[in-house]
Design a protein around this nucleic acid. Structure first.
Lengths: 226, 226, 226, 226
DNA sequence: TATGAATGAGGGTTCATTCAT
DNA sequence: TATGAATGAACCCTCATTCAT
């Protein structure tokens, strides 16, 4: 699994004269996806973003679908890896939740491209079509692999969302939180946090950290006993 | 302005033998957009959803872009029209806000297609390409109209979001609400509410009303003084 | 500037197994244009004439308009290059004019396709509209270039016609020719010469050279003092 | 046979409030054809020129091909009718020819639309395709009629050209003209005359009459014994 | 690895034509 | 006669993908 995006998946733009690798392409693709969306983004666009031709991309990724999956996988793993130290720590549920919310939001504001992809391109990933029955055995094999990876991705995404839900449940059980509907509450969190990627502008008057702090406070207020 | 979608824009599927009109197409298009996204949705798909051929769509809408705009306009106006009786009423800020949140969420769960379009297809609308300066006078005229309508749409959307923000501000000023960052709080609301359109399933175990109630409670808790 | 068509732009059909280039396409396109006219000619037709698919043409020409322009440019340059040695020579105006007329007519009969294009497709070139949507700054740039090239083409065509008119004027001034209206006379020439491309059949009983000789004689008789 | 175009086929624009008839459409169509060419001209364009919708044209003409044929027929008959009084008169071959040339040129400058159609749209007429084998018997019947009319048109056009050729031959036989190649000379005439329709501008500094006079003089000088 | 050339598969759009009103 | 709505057939063009170099 690639690890370009670890540490809040911060982007380090490559100098143009170096040879590109998988991770460069993933980052560039995320940016193109953010601007145009998966369907409107062309392989040529993505290739141009790393000074390649479209044909060259196929040395790194089997096809466009796989590249999309790679972008999403990288993004998801990066966020999950930010969560693990928090969920594994020993502190109050409120503290855990606050840190998770902040981590998520900061990750999104740090790399809006990947954040947006995680929100907007999931549908494209779901809609990837099976190859025609007349396709080569090779293609069908590749699609089987793709599906397996995609299923794994969705499972992993559910795990990610469960991380929040677990903490919420724990807090409720321990009496630290009010007994809200944990499913609804978790989705409230995720919606608010994902949405940041839609409206956040790097040149806005609030930093990602500032936004994260304020939003975490608001969201926690909705559940923490006063 | 079309008014198909008034009253929580509930969909009434047309019998196949009746002649279709603009509004039928808009509703069908919204559904296709929800499934595939604007770029992946084809005119043929949309046409098939109202038992027409792609060519026939062009009797009702000048092109695909205009159809997208029409879908979004209809959706936005429908939601706004739900808000107006609430914002105009005389009750506490908390009551107003609660009713607005609920109305929005119920609108989204009532017509997930339009709700999703409002979230996911805004980017497609922004990315619509301009015709060349030297295109036929007719084309230029049409595009000028499109742009004007698009600008109006975005202005109207900002107005919609302001409705929430206004209530939040009023509540803070009157001391009814805690003094949170009203911009952040409003976006928290909108994110959570919009997100409902992404995860809500009509066959889930919670009705739209139930979701609306629980989520409104959570979100209000984040701001109302206890 | 391409030079396929130099020397009376004679056509040499390419063997099917060689890779095609720009010039092959231009010649094939001219032939298709002669048969069908620009509007009726399809990219598929043109592509088939060089054993390609329509899509492949787009590796060589940005679009159909540009291909048309390339055909006309090549044809015009070929004829002009035939004129230059004549206009630059030192002989009587009558001799010059006779040689120019003959050269033009022989060029037309040698390659009726290009000759016909120069007569019939000018209107299509004038009517080229900007693409309805300029997808990018790139597209607008491309169209600007097209327009510049088209303008240059028309200027060059006017130059070509002026070559005849100059000789006519010189002959009149020197007293070698009768004092006719030089504009009308020049257009009489050009009309008669261009028209050859319309009625000439390679399998007719007169060769291009024979036609050229007779027509030149007739036309000169209309102006040379006896 | 329609006779709208008699007398140099001069156009009389219809006031917009009167009901249109076949002849109005023919004239309007000629104008649209001149601007765009047959393939690029749409039935809608033509209809709009007479304040109709495309569908309405089909009450007057079976299809686009037939309309084209009607335009050309009308134009041809109008010119031929101008020639007959001349060819039937008793005067010298030179006088006859001069009057014919002038009549033709003035006809062209009087109605450039029809003149241009006669030059540029003949190819379109030739290329009209037979209906598919699967077409209705009705369609096949209509096509048979079309073909018969088209053949008659071409025969008639050849007759028209023969009118000139006859006079040329008579003049040569009588010794009034020099013994030039009558085929080449006739085509020289026709080319020069037809070409007028291409370059003539109603707002130019020479009237049609003036052009006709000068060009006739030049062309006659090429054949009349001095 | 990288790419230029080639292509099959569409997609948006136009258009001639039909038909019910 | 006139027309709005509908449609099949094409057409231009794009694009993901392949392959020889």
């Amino acid at each position: 699994m690639t690890n370009v995006l670890k540490g809040r998946f911060r982007v380090a733009r490559k100098p143009a004269d170096q040879s590109v690798n998988r991770d460069d392409i993933i980052l560039a693709a995320a940016e193109v996806l953010r601007r145009n969306g998966y369907e409107a983004a062309t392989m040529k666009d993505i290739a141009a973003a790393v000074n390649l031709t479209a044909a060259s991309l196929y040395h790194h990724f089997r096809n466009k679908d796989t590249l999309l999956l790679a972008v999403l996988e990288a993004g998801l793993e990066a966020i999950i890896s930010l969560m693990q130290p928090i969920t594994g720590s020993r502190c109050s549920s409120a503290d855990k939740l606050r840190r998770m919310i902040r981590a998520h939001i900061v990750a999104v504001t740090d790399n809006t491209a990947v954040g947006a992809a995680m929100v907007f391109e999931i549908r494209a990933l779901m809609n990837v079509k099976a190859p025609a029955k007349t396709a080569s055995a090779d293609d069908r094999q590749a699609y089987a692999e793709f599906r397996a990876r995609r299923d794994a991705f969705f499972a992993r995404r559910d795990q990610f969302e469960s991380l929040f839900r677990q903490v919420v449940r724990e807090g409720i059980e321990s009496g630290e939180f009010r007994p809200v509907d944990d499913g609804i509450y978790t989705r409230t969190l995720l919606g608010a946090q994902n949405w940041v990627g839609v409206w956040y502008r790097p040149d806005g008057h609030l930093s990602g950290e500032a936004i994260a702090g304020r939003m975490a406070e608001i969201l926690l207020e909705g559940i923490v006993k006063s």
